[in-house]
Design a protein around this nucleic acid. Structure first.
Length: 268
DNA sequence: AAGCTTTGACCTATA
DNA sequence: TTATAGGTCAAAGCT
């Protein structure tokens, strides 16, 4: 039962209600690293349990318009990916600039390595608290604000696209990516608008390995560099609407993402 | 040559 | 059982 999937909270509210360093505990709250020994032979997408976020009690989602006005967004989103490392801007958020609250330390180091440098929003966090969802997500999915996602695959992990599909629930096509790390089942779905802007990113599953320091080898970096240097992809995320949510397998994303729908239409 | 993307077909889940 | 939608496979092509 999803109570108020829609209680929106401004981003500033979130900031006010949290006040804890999100990254202190770990990096991996989305699709991040988690021990292979889940203890119960968890299926590919079963990962460590989320933890009740200390975050505000009414923030299932928040208005990104607020967020867009946020100074932290300005400072970060304007940063471009390093042409040499491919690293992106969110580093600056770590600890101090990024007041969101992430699942806390009670978890396994499952955090969002994938997002460690990218983004974090918390829309459905509260759900963790209200839902009877056990500590083990049946099928953890995490949506990431596109504007925070500097790159399609620049979250520190290596991703390989294995499919693309136009889905009904969205007017934009979805691209499916798998982690290129051997035996890693982590996946992510990136929804991209016709103009190339990322409108939504969903992380599924966690990495069973630490984030590699170098996602790409020099030899293959060329292809990557092309994308990194692609102005549209770099700039796009800044003003993109999006949301983040934790899906436990039942959340109707359609309902929780009114902002996306709306802004997508407005923005073209 | 290796790794990645593209893309139509195929598979699976759900109503 | 059938239709539909979402997700995945895998051959071909590209860098």
């Amino acid at each position: 039962t999803a109570p108020q999937l829609k209680s929106e909270t401004s981003f500033t509210d979130l900031l006010a209600s949290s006040g804890v360093d999100p990254y202190e505990q770990d990096e991996d709250f989305l699709g991040g690293f988690f021990p292979e020994t889940t203890g119960s032979g968890l299926p590919k997408f079963k990962t460590a349990q989320p933890s009740p976020l200390p975050i505000s009690q009414s923030s299932r989602s928040f208005a990104f318009s607020e967020l867009l006005d946020s100074p932290l967004l300005l400072s970060s989103s304007h940063s471009l990916i390093s042409p040499t490392t491919g690293a992106f801007p969110f580093q600056g958020f770590n600890g101090s600039d990024f007041p969101w609250q992430l699942p806390s330390q009670t978890q396994t180091p499952n955090a969002a390595s994938a997002l460690q440098e990218e983004a974090y929003g918390v829309q459905d966090l509260q759900k963790k608290q209200e839902d009877p969802v056990p500590r083990e997500f049946a099928d953890r999915q995490v949506k990431v604000p596109s504007y925070m996602v500097s790159r399609n695959s620049n979250d520190g992990y290596g991703w390989r696209k294995y499919g693309q599909k136009q889905v009904k629930k969205s007017e934009n096509p979805r691209s499916y990516f798998k982690c290129t790390y051997p035996n890693c089942v982590s996946k992510k779905i990136v929804e991209t608008a016709s103009d190339g802007q990322i409108t939504e990113i969903i992380y599924k599953g966690g990495h069973n390995h630490p984030k590699p320091e170098f996602t790409k080898r020099p030899s293959s970096s060329s292809a990557n560099a092309r994308r990194i240097l692609n102005p549209s992809s770099v700039v796009s995320e800044q003003s993109e609407s999006s949301s983040i949510s934790f899906d436990y397998g039942e959340v109707d994303e359609e309902k929780e993402q009114p902002e996306i729908k709306r802004l997508k239409r407005e923005g073209g």
